[in-house]
Design a protein around this nucleic acid. Structure first.
Lengths: 203, 203
DNA sequence: GTCTATAGAAGGATAGAC
DNA sequence: GTCTATCCTTCTATAGAC
């Protein structure tokens, strides 16, 4: 039955997502995924042929999910300051619900840059980022933003948001020792990062 | 001969460092390490017994190397602004020579937080970070730094420095598309990040 | 479509000669 | 200390019954 097939395929996909996120491609085991999905190994191969096919499917889905979260920056009708606040609030909220995602994506891309290329290489970042300069041309007199320092600024914003999750393992040890709760720290970060960036780029 | 033994053990250790950094624990193969060291698998086990022992040795060495680079912040006799500039210059220079290190450390700690705990858990971060407030007490009137926001500020500084290397795989694709050279970007980042932080924390 | 059983390859680890 | 040969387990993948 197609309905049932959909269900099984989804069960497998969801199990694979969890296991790959947790263990990475090389660390994940087909047996672990099968167990988690409540089926046997043979079925995995029936639906996805090989481990690499299964991983590819999961990775593509997750990478799109991750990167699509940057889109609102280029679309929303907000002032630059509102947009920055909006981004940190939304992006960090997203990662609160997907805390393993950043580390997973970053790690797998470093291990195999080729895999992401076909997903990103058709995006014209030069053009995309330039829309920021255009959309906010009327208020840029307030800020130190130029086409030249845009890569620094954009990666700075990304790093402030993503790094705490990617490096969570380390931060939790440091914080635990310092007496800080990670979840509280993350909640605070939504406004701290926004304030920090706005202060830094304002003339 | 002890001299010769030292040489072989070092050859293995160096080969293992490269392979583990590149492939991670689960992705690395003893055969690959042996090939790179120019010896056979059996010798690996003669010197390090198991793959896990070998990894532990490499990881500990690299983690210490990485974290020790943060020490000057707490030791140098510099003004806060000079110290921030010093940190980004030195830390980014260090990673220019060890570009795979941040991603490797972060990833392995996320996969096995326990491994790093015995390395970091005896450090009193509360006390360590407080020394900053003490050392620079006389100039803190200029800055928005308190014991409460110190975790946010410290992790912000770390992220600005570390993230570009950890996420290098992604940034290179974005930059390549944007027409930016990664090495140039990194060189610029030493001063950009310092300026950015100083601007943001200054009252 | 789902299962059991198993093939076949790879990888970590050891035995034993030199 | 270093090598070759090999054991044994683990893992991906497939064959074949239902």
């Amino acid at each position: 039955m197609s309905e049932n097939e959909k269900l099984t395929e989804e069960k497998i996909f969801e199990a694979a997502t969890v296991v790959f996120e947790e263990e990475g491609l090389s660390g994940a085991r087909m047996q672990t995924i099968a167990d988690r999905a409540g089926i046997n190994k043979a079925l995995l191969h029936y639906y996805f042929r090989t481990k690499d096919h299964l991983f590819e499917a999961v990775f593509t889905k997750l990478a799109k999910k991750m990167f699509s979260k940057f889109n609102p920056i280029f679309e929303k009708e907000l002032s630059l300051e509102e947009k920055i606040r909006f981004f940190f609030r939304e992006h960090i909220s997203f990662m609160q619900h997907n805390p393993k995602l950043p580390g997973f994506i970053i790690n797998e891309i470093n291990h195999n840059p080729q895999r992401i290329k076909k997903l990103l290489s058709n995006i014209d970042f030069k053009k995309l980022w330039s829309t920021i300069l255009e959309h906010h041309a009327h208020e840029l007199y307030k800020y130190n933003i130029t086409e030249e320092n845009l890569p620094q600024i954009m990666t700075t914003i990304a790093s402030l948001s993503v790094f705490p999750f990617a490096a969570r393992g380390i931060l939790e040890i440091v914080f635990n020792n310092y007496g800080v709760n990670f979840d509280k720290y993350i909640e605070d970060r939504k406004t701290f990062a926004a304030d920090f960036v706005i202060k830094a780029i304002t003339k």
